[in-house]
Amino acid sequence: MTLRMLKAVVLKIGFWALVGVLMLYAIFPFYYAVVTSLKPSSELFEVSYWIDDLDFSNYVAVPSQPAFLAAIRNSVIVAVSVVIIALLLGLTAAWALGRVRFRGRTTVMMLVLGVSMFPQVAVLSGLFEVIRTLDLYNSPGGLILSYTIFTLPFTVWILTTFMRQLPDELEEAAIVDGASPWVTLTKVFMPLLWPAMATTGLLAFIAAWNEFLFALTFTLTDTQRTVPVAIALISGGSQYELPWGPIMAASVIVTVPLVVLVVIFQRRIVSGLTAGAVKG
């Protein structure tokens, strides 16, 4: 009897210890970023895991730079445009791939998946030529174009998977009611695909918001930069100083919108991620 109780207690302790390790592993880097951002630069290199007194000077310094504000504006424009374009194209493509029977449908799906397997570096120079030709260099348009290329495959793939799960008879009911394909898509399918759209939209937003390589390559001037590049290019007082405090403060500031979005869409995302598991 006592042995069994002991075993239960040990198991419970073990379980929570494991949870603790995982939490530490997942959260510590962010915690350390926040802690660093709240320290004056003079204390930066004293390693400590606790803050004794809050110092908001970094948070005051970062947003007062005009380049940083421009970067945030650019990031918002780029990320929102990518989400809208990707969802619109993804939804219509998913309708065709998930609902219309045509020859070569599987091939198209495989191609879509194949495209998304190339690493960014592989297409960098080619894409650069395209962007130069289209006269989109050093403008948000170039970034929107290149992010959409990388976001569309998974948007199409996920939305197609969800679209296929909607019963055929639902579409036929709409046809009998006199709905055109566009009306069926927007009035019948879209409301039912909301969870999937929220999930894919959010993933596309995060990807566009955090992207660095393209943003660095395809923009030149401070006014056209997006946040990740702007942060990386924050420079200190001299060549020998890396301004960790402002960098961390800027990082925390730009992570807040993502956290807010995730919290808003949390329930949608969970139902979106699990909706595929059980056929409904």
Binding site: P167, E169, L170, E172, A173, A174, V176, V188, L192
Partner: peptide, 12 residues
């Protein structure tokens, strides 16, 4: 007008 086996009502 058609009545489907699964009813196919618009769920939303």
């Amino acid at each position: 007008g058609m009545v489907f086996q699964s009813y196919a009502l618009y769920p939303h």
